[in-house]
Design a protein around this nucleic acid. Structure first.
Length: 403
DNA sequence: CTTCCACGGGAACACTGGGGTG
DNA sequence: CACCCCAGTGTTCCCGTGGAAG
């Protein structure tokens, strides 16, 4: 077969793969009419020269929050450009700009102020931004995506942002916060909370039927005709609906199923391919998370593996894990962390869904955490022992010899 | 009622990479 | 140039606390 024959084969299934990617923002957002309308109504104030209310948007991952906001933002900017109103939308992903300093530095840079990546006191950065926006009469809408990330180390950013209007003479700033955590406002100062949540919009999870609609729409563009077997879309929708109605998940499933079919040189995507895709996504997710784990977290996970191997048990107490962790650290010549710190690492691993930890009180024998692995062992092994931990693979034999 | 172990909040500290000032 | 200031991150230290077995 010619080198390019295999490439040409791809065309048999995909017509345009990009529309299945998470970054793609469709022109039409099924089942989000109401949210779009609500958002547009609030923001339309900007076109009338008023300051739109601050908005909080809630919804789980893959419920279309970001897509909706970006879509409405685009429309708004176009309209305001057409009628000569000055409104700008700044989109900030708080996962990347996750501190007060970084948010204001980014904002200041948008408004043509030079601010170093670090080094300045924050009030100077804030001042640079304030001065930058206030240069001209305009309405600036700051979108803070994943806003809950910002609140983890204090709510000062939000406080400063919400009171900035009182220090502006020409410009006006309003904030749209996007959160997938429904209760994150509880950590906020009441004043910030009420100012930020003047309007609230909720994005409910999609059900299987709605996910099907979304998939159908994209599939019509993404695939050539008749490449999807009958039950493929309903199955992707159903699987994703089980996971809190995550549309991104559904689209990933569909795309990867098709990629698998393609690689198997199949002309059609079948339900079997979807099942394989489902498994692969799960494995990749775990592998990716584990690979990027900090060194000590890896050792903690590793200690679970070794404990499990030596004891034929699933659950271990934090004490057992810490002891094993220490031994392993000594073995590879790394200074062990304190128990307190390791307990935080365990909590993080729990959050990531790699471990399952529950606090139990064992009466006379004190309080502890019972911890078990919550992913298959085989998904961990290959990826856990990176170059620094290679030597640990012979760890088990040594311990048995010393016992 | 005591006793025990580790949980987990909070303060303090060390360190990094960058500022501005004299 | 030396020196101190600043935000941010990761860590240690200290300690009050929960709650069932004994």
């Amino acid at each position: 077969m010619n080198l390019f024959d295999s490439v040409m084969l791809e065309r048999r299934i995909f017509a345009n793969k990009d529309v299945l990617r998470p970054s793609y923002i469709p022109e039409n957002l099924p089942h989000r009419k109401q949210q779009i309308k609500q958002l547009a109504e609030i923001l339309s104030a900007a076109l009338r020269g008023e300051t739109p209310s601050n908005i909080l948007i809630y919804g789980k991952t893959g419920t279309g929050k970001t897509a909706t906001v970006k879509y409405v933002a685009k429309e708004l900017e176009e309209t305001s450009h057409r009628i000569g109103a000055k409104s700008e939308i700044v989109y900030i992903n708080s996962e990347i700009f996750d501190t007060q300093y970084r948010v204001f530095a980014y904002l200041a840079r948008i408004f043509n102020r030079k601010v170093p990546v670090m080094g300045w006191p924050t009030d100077m950065v804030y001042e640079a931004f304030r001065e930058g926006v206030d240069r001209e009469r305009r309405c600036v809408i700051v979108v803070l995506d994943e806003i809950d990330r910002l609140v983890r180390n204090g709510d000062e950013v939000l406080y400063n942002l919400s009171r900035i209007n009182s220090e502006l003479s020409r410009a006006r700033v309003s904030v749209i916060g996007i959160s997938n955590d429904l209760i994150f406002t509880e950590r906020l100062d009441p004043r910030v909370k009420s100012s930020l949540g003047e309007e609230e919009i909720v994005f409910p999870p999609y059900d299987a039927k709605q996910l099907s609609d979304i998939l159908e729409e994209r599939a019509a563009v993404a695939f050539n005709e008749n490449v999807l077997a009958e039950g493929v879309i309903p199955l992707c929708a159903a699987l994703a609906a089980q996971e809190h109605g995550d549309a991104r998940r559904a689209l990933d499933l569909l795309r990867i199923s098709a990629e698998i079919a393609e690689r198997a040189s199949s002309d059609v995507v079948t339900e079997e391919h979807v099942r394989m895709a489902c498994e692969r996504i799960e494995m990749n997710k775990v592998a990716e998370v584990v690979r990027t784990l900090p060194l000590h977290s890896k050792i903690v996970l590793g200690s679970m593996l070794f404990l499990g191997r030596e004891n034929c048990r699933k659950k271990f107490t934090s004490g057992e894990i810490y002891n094993m962790y220490r031994k392993m650290c000594v073995f590879v010549g790394i200074e062990p962390l304190t128990q307190r710190r390791v307990s935080d690492l365990i909590a993080e691993l729990d959050m990531l869904g790699l471990l399952n930890a529950t606090v139990v009180s064992r009466g006379r024998y004190g309080r502890t955490k019972e911890i078990s692995l919550s992913v298959p062992e085989k998904n961990l092994r290959d990826v856990l022992f990176d170059h620094r931990l290679k030597s640990l693979e012979s760890f088990r034999i040594r311990t048995q010899m010393t016992l």
